[in-house]
Design a protein around this nucleic acid. Sequence first.
DNA 1: TAATTTAATCGTAATATTGCGATATAATAA
DNA 2: TTATTATATCGCAATATTACGATTAAATTA
Lengths: 108, 108
Amino acid sequence: MGLTKTDTYNTKTLSLATLFKALGHPARIAILEFIAKQSTCICGDIVTELPLSQASISRHLSELKAAGLIKGTITGTSVCYCLNPENMPFLVQFLNQLNSPTNQTCCS
Amino acid sequence: MGLTKTDTYNTKTLSLATLFKALGHPARIAILEFIAKQSTCICGDIVTELPLSQASISRHLSELKAAGLIKGTITGTSVCYCLNPENMPFLVQFLNQLNSPTNQTCCS
DNA sequence: TAATTTAATCGTAATATTGCGATATAATAA
DNA sequence: TTATTATATCGCAATATTACGATTAAATTA
């Protein structure tokens, strides 16, 4: 019965880590890049785009979806995926804070 | 002799994934938040700040350093860590692209 | 209804990450 | 030189992630 991550870190820290973790795999970055490039939903043609099995891509898609980075809509036999921009500002804000001038005053 | 990640994904995709992966753990987010909060170098007092062993913190610090998210300078017996803002704009730019209006035209 | 298509899930093997005690290293202080 | 202090690394166990073939599920088409 050790400390869990939920006990140890606050909600914001855990959310950031979860989102970044979902972004921390090249296949998932490639999927996001591909969806963005289409600038519309993509329906099923991701499997042909990446050198991964259908099972693996489906897994990555569900991870991206669970993290709130994409949305999926069922249309007939296929599923339509698009970006979910909801959490982007949260991540950008965090990174910008790390990048602010106040944090560049040492280790030069 | 399967395909390696380096064969499969382009450099930009791999860099993004590596950086995000380094950000994908609550302990490492907490470390970055702590350094940012001090808005100066921190020298050694991270161990008392987080509920992790000295060995584990050292490991997380070296991962953050390897990813290029922090810098470390040796000063006497201790090491001084501060943020390395170098890669932040790269990450922010990627996230902002995902968040651009062009990418919000479907799955509504 | 039976075949087809599309995507998710299961089971499992391989690999990677995480955490920690113990130990090593390196600089300073006594 | 011998402690002491601060940090990194080693070795190992526990856990998590990744990938894929096979299977399942659900909608569509013949």
